[in-house]
Amino acid sequence: MKIFLVGMPGCGKSTVGKVLAERLGYTFLDLDTLVEEQEGMTVPQVFEQQGQDYFREAEARALRAVASRPDRVVLATGGGAPCFCGNMAFMGAQGITVYLRLSPQELVDRLTALDLQARPLLRDKTPPELLRYLAETLQQREQFYRQSVCTVAAGAAPATAVAQQIEQCLAGLPQEGNGSI
């Protein structure tokens, strides 16, 4: 079983993913980290040296490699991953997709506390520019995110509470095989 966490940058996919994986006894993986290992360079370097199209193809390759793993995995995807290369449909066919939803303002509040230089599409934006960019990008991406089996409001809740909400959603889904998640 694979659980794919999707949503905008800063929505908590990595933080919640680690908590959820620990609670379920799954392996936690981060798609950006896998791309970096696969490509031998950081995500910003891939963007700068190869371009966004190449990055999206590398991301799709890394995603497909995760699907072939025999272990149970919680994967934090990149914010754009579901929107390219048929990735959302692929994830839906390979496991369970969970959308961690936040408003653009909640995203800005979280992201302005982080170092945005590691995020190629967000760096060098002022808070008003960041809000505008996130609102426009969310509007474009939400058609993909909303295809998820579960949608969880990630707002101000701590990661443990969000992980519990995901578990509750998963418990309400038809179970595979032996009835365990």
Results as ranks from 00 to 15, higher is better:
174 P>N: 05
145 Y>C: 09
106 E>K: 01
99 Y>A: 09
5 L>R: 07
87 N>M: 06
37 E>C: 08
133 Y>K: 00
75 L>M: 12
33 T>H: 02
127 P>D: 13
150 C>H: 07
150 C>E: 11
90 F>R: 10
129 E>S: 05
108 V>S: 01
112 T>V: 15
72 R>W: 07
121 L>H: 04
79 G>H: 07
174 P>M: 10
175 Q>W: 06
109 D>S: 14
126 T>Y: 09
96 I>L: 13
147 Q>R: 14
73 V>L: 03
99 Y>Q: 12
47 F>H: 11
107 L>W: 11
160 T>H: 10
8 M>K: 03
119 R>H: 05
119 R>T: 03
26 Y>I: 11
111 L>S: 02
111 L>E: 09
56 R>N: 03
8 M>V: 01
153 A>V: 11
181 I>K: 06
86 G>I: 09
37 E>A: 14
21 A>S: 05
68 S>T: 13
134 L>C: 02
85 C>Q: 15
142 E>D: 06
34 L>D: 02
59 E>P: 00
14 S>E: 02
75 L>R: 02
142 E>A: 02
141 R>K: 03
71 D>C: 08
132 R>T: 14
123 R>F: 10
131 L>S: 04
104 P>K: 12
133 Y>D: 00
96 I>S: 14
14 S>I: 09
109 D>K: 13
155 G>H: 10
26 Y>N: 06
55 F>A: 06
145 Y>A: 10
95 G>Y: 00
65 A>N: 12
169 C>D: 14
105 Q>T: 11
139 Q>R: 11
73 V>H: 03
143 Q>V: 12
104 P>A: 12
39 E>Q: 08
178 N>G: 13
67 A>D: 10
49 Q>E: 14
181 I>D: 00
60 A>N: 05
90 F>P: 00
28 F>P: 05
29 L>P: 11
63 L>W: 02
89 A>Y: 06
175 Q>R: 15
93 A>D: 15
34 L>R: 14
85 C>M: 14
37 E>D: 06
169 C>A: 15
74 V>P: 01
32 D>Q: 04
105 Q>E: 15
148 S>Q: 09
127 P>A: 05
176 E>D: 09
154 A>S: 15
86 G>V: 08
89 A>N: 08
82 P>H: 08
4 F>S: 09
103 S>N: 04
19 V>Q: 04
165 Q>D: 15
2 K>S: 10
45 Q>T: 09
40 G>L: 11
12 G>L: 02
49 Q>D: 13
98 V>H: 05
130 L>D: 01
101 R>I: 05
97 T>A: 12
68 S>I: 03
13 K>I: 13
27 T>D: 00
130 L>E: 03
131 L>G: 11
94 Q>R: 07
165 Q>S: 15
76 A>D: 04
153 A>N: 12
87 N>G: 01
94 Q>K: 10
26 Y>R: 15
110 R>S: 10
99 Y>D: 06
59 E>Q: 01
28 F>G: 06
84 F>N: 05
22 E>Y: 00
4 F>Y: 15
3 I>L: 10
167 E>L: 13
165 Q>E: 13
11 C>E: 14
130 L>A: 04
23 R>Q: 11
55 F>V: 07
28 F>V: 12
124 D>F: 00
15 T>G: 01
56 R>W: 01
29 L>C: 10
127 P>L: 07
121 L>C: 01
22 E>V: 02
103 S>I: 14
